[in-house]
């Protein structure tokens, strides 16, 4: 396929990527016959491809239920993928078994949306943070406590929190604990699954700044999933826009904000609130709801809500292509223009 070639060409000209995702697909069975054959499935992630380089932040945006979280978890192999290829740090981990993954777990970690349910309620902060260090033997047993205290300091946690339980903390502090836990094993890639959407705005800023600071200090690569465009604009180097399981647009932050190609991206960007009250906002209002991923529309998945949809959009699936260097999109309108 032509687009596949373009992806690999783009890779070869740049330094070695830490994460390469090719045509990733994830489907959940929703109906099975008696023999166990899948009769109907929900396609949560469909044909997603992108490349991520060390030290970069990729922001993934999209509506609720568009498969952002599922994609993040599938990349970490927390769900088995149903197609495509995941290449992490030069290794094709698509078909790795759980035991093969175990050694890679120290290199890729995840931070969750809900800081309340993501910490075990009956363990102290010290236990939560030292368990991964002990299990993966990151440092010798005698230095574990020192290591954990050091880590807590880096994440803005006081040393006397060590003996405390998660329920004693507020949301922001719990999220700091979650970040510390993810970083305890010195990962290279961290999937941040809407890490700030459960927090209020002032705390969001603190957590985002903490994530940026840690990225600088440790050279982390983030896959930052969010539905908050302002947050993504602030933290990301690259942005991927997802709609109903597929990537509709992908590119550098600058390009994508300066020149959004896909009509969905344009509609999303028009919804970013502008702090200047005199400036009139030109909202592109989308009608209708996001269709069910169990029964996606034929052709372009966005055609039911697209203001510019043509007959072709209803029948043909648009090709995901590179329109500017490093700027990909999937839309018939763009290819027609050319």
């Amino acid at each position: 396929m032509a687009d596949e070639k373009k992806v690999t060409e783009a890779v070869s000209s740049e330094p070695k990527p830490i994460l390469e995702v090719n045509h990733l697909r994830k489907a959940f069975p929703i109906k099975k016959s008696l023999t166990g054959k899948v009769q109907q499935e929900l396609i949560a992630v469909d044909d997603v491809s992108f490349v991520l380089h060390p030290g970069e932040t990729l922001g993934i945006v999209g509506e609720s239920g568009c498969g952002k979280t599922t994609m993040g978890r599938t990349i970490l192999k927390l769900h088995p993928s149903s197609g495509g290829q995941i290449i992490f740090d030069g290794k094709d981990i698509t078909n790795y078994t759980n035991s093969q993954m175990r050694s890679l777990r120290t290199e890729m970690q995840i931070i969750f949306q809900d800081p309340y349910s993501s910490l075990p309620p009956r363990a102290t902060v010290g236990d939560i943070l030292s368990e991964p260090v002990k299990v993966h033997k990151i440092v010798p047993p005698s230095e574990v406590k020192h290591y954990v205290l050091n880590l807590m300091e880096q994440c803005g946690l006081r040393d006397y929190y060590y003996e405390r339980y998660p329920h004693e903390f507020s949301g922001g502090q719990r999220q700091r604990i979650c970040i510390a836990r993810a970083l305890a094993v010195n990962p290279k890639l961290v999937v941040c699954d809407e890490p700030v959407s459960a927090l209020d705005v002032s705390i969001q800023a603190q957590i985002i700044n903490l994530l940026k600071k840690l990225q600088k200090e440790r050279g982390l690569t983030y896959l930052f999933i969010s539905h908050d465009l302002s947050v993504v604009k602030f933290i990301s180097d690259k942005i991927g826009v997802m709609y109903l399981g597929s990537m509709v647009e992908f590119g550098n932050k600058k390009d994508i904000f300066a020149n959004p190609l896909h009509p969905y991206t344009k509609a999303l960007f028009s919804a970013i609130p502008n702090p200047d009250p005199d400036k009139k906002m030109e909202r592109i209002a989308l009608s209708g709801d996001i269709p069910s991923p169990a029964n996606p529309p034929k052709g372009c998945r966005f055609h039911t809500r697209c203001p510019h949809a043509t007959e072709k959009c209803k029948t043909d699936v648009p090709v995901y292509r590179e329109y500017e260097p490093g700027h990909f999109a999937a839309c018939h309108l763009l290819s027609d223009e050319e």
Binding site: L78, M101, T106, S118, E131, H136, C178, V185
Partner: peptide
């Protein structure tokens, strides 16, 4: 619960 997903992501046995 998400802390079990976190445990999975940590590669615990």
């Amino acid at each position: 619960q998400e802390y079990m997903v976190a445990a999975e992501a940590m590669g615990y046995s």
